[in-house]
Simulated scan of single mutants.
Amino acid sequence: MYAAELVEIALTTLKCSQKELALRLGVSPTQVTKWKNGEHMSSEMEKRLRELSKIGDADPSLVVWAGSPRAAKQWREVIKYLADMANEGGETGYNTAPLSDAAGDEMTLDILCGQTVLTLNDMGVAPPKAFPTDLKNALADEEPYELFDEHPLANLIGKIYSAYTDVYGFYVAYVDELLEDDDGNPIDGFDDIEPCLLSLAASKLEIAQPDVEVRRDIKVGLAFAPNFLEFKRKTEKDYKRWMTKLKNRAIRTGAPLRAEIMDMVYDSHDSLGHKAEAEALGFNNSNLHPDMYMNELITGMRMIHQILPKILDKLDIKFTPDMARLRADEARWQSTQEADED
C-alpha cells in the first residue's frame, strides 16, 4: 500500500541511489523501480524498509508529506488535537467516529492522517517544507487552538474537520442504513461512500479569490489550494454517481428515504449539519418513513399532464381514456399482488 512512499523515504534518509538501496535489500534495481511505481510490497520487505528508514510504525504518506519522521510525529499531534476540537464542537447530535476515535486509537489516527494528506494533496496544497516554528510553540501551549487557527495550513485542516462533523452527521442519520440489506450485510458497490466523506467535506468549504491568502475568516484560497475547483468537481461527480445509484436501489426495493439523500452532494455542510441535528432531536418523528422520492414522481406526473395534451393537439390526435379498462387492469394487478403474497 505504501511501497512508493517507503522507497522515497529510504532514499532520502539513507542518501543513497536506487541501485545502492537495491543492494542493501538484496533485490534488483528494477524491483525498486516497480515499488516506486506502486507495485505491491511484501510485509517482510516493508518491515525492512521501515527499519532502514527508522520511521517505526509511522504512516509513510504522512512522513513523505511532512518531510521527516520527526515532523510527521509533530503533525500527527496537530491533527489529533484539531480532530478532537472539531468533534467536540460538532452540533449534529451524532458522533463523528473517525474524529473521536482518533484521540484514543492509534490505527484510527493513522487512517485520519493518511486521508487528510491525500485530501490536501488532491486540493493542490503544497506540503510543508519543515514543521513551522509557530506550531511548535502551539504544541507546547496549554490552550493552542488560537495559535493553530492563525496558521494557514492548521486552520484549513481544522475547517475541513469541522465540515466533516456536519457531513458525517448527515451520513449517519440518513445514508448509512441504506448501505445494508435486511440482514445487516453491506451492499456491494457502495464501498467508497464512507471512506471519501472527508474529501466531500473539504469540497464544501467556501473559496476565496486566487490572489487572497487563507485567513481566519476564509475557508480556502485558490492561491493556497490551486486544484480546489477541479477537486470539488471530481468529488461531487463521484458522489452524484454513488448517491444516484443508491437512491435508485432504494426506489426499486421500496426502502423509505427519510431525507433527500442527493442533498449530501449539493447542500452546504452547514445545511447538512442542521438536517442531521433535526433528525437527532426527533423533529422528523411526525413524518415516519416518508417516501421522499414520491415528490419526484408526482412532479413528473404533473409535467406529463401539462405537456402530453399539447403534444396530442399538435399531432391532431383525439384521445379519451377508457376508464373501465383502466379499472379492470388495476383490479387484475391487485389480484396478482395478493396471490403473490399468499
Rank of each mutant, 00 (worst) to 15 (best):
P256F: 10
H274C: 00
E279Q: 08
S268Y: 01
E277M: 06
E260S: 08
D267A: 13
A276F: 10
E277T: 06
R252C: 13
A280K: 05
S271Q: 05
D267S: 12
R252V: 14
D263K: 07
S271N: 06
E260Q: 09
A276D: 12
A255W: 13
L272N: 09
D270F: 14
A280W: 04
T253I: 09
E277K: 13
D270C: 03
K275R: 11
A280D: 03
D263H: 09
V265M: 04
I251R: 15
A278L: 07
V265Y: 04
G273M: 00
T253F: 10
D267Y: 11
A276L: 11
A276C: 13
L257E: 09
R249L: 13
L281D: 13
S268P: 06
A276E: 07
E260R: 10
K275P: 06
K275E: 11
G273T: 07
H269C: 03
R258K: 12
A259C: 01
A278D: 06
T253P: 04
N248A: 13
G273W: 01
M264P: 07
A250S: 13
A255Q: 14
I251G: 02
L281M: 11
A280V: 05
H274I: 03
R252P: 14
S268E: 10
I261A: 08
G254Y: 10
G273V: 03
D270Y: 08
K275Q: 11
D270I: 12
Y266L: 05
K275F: 07
V265Q: 01
R252F: 14
R258C: 05
D267R: 11
R249Y: 08
R252L: 15
D263C: 10
E277P: 05
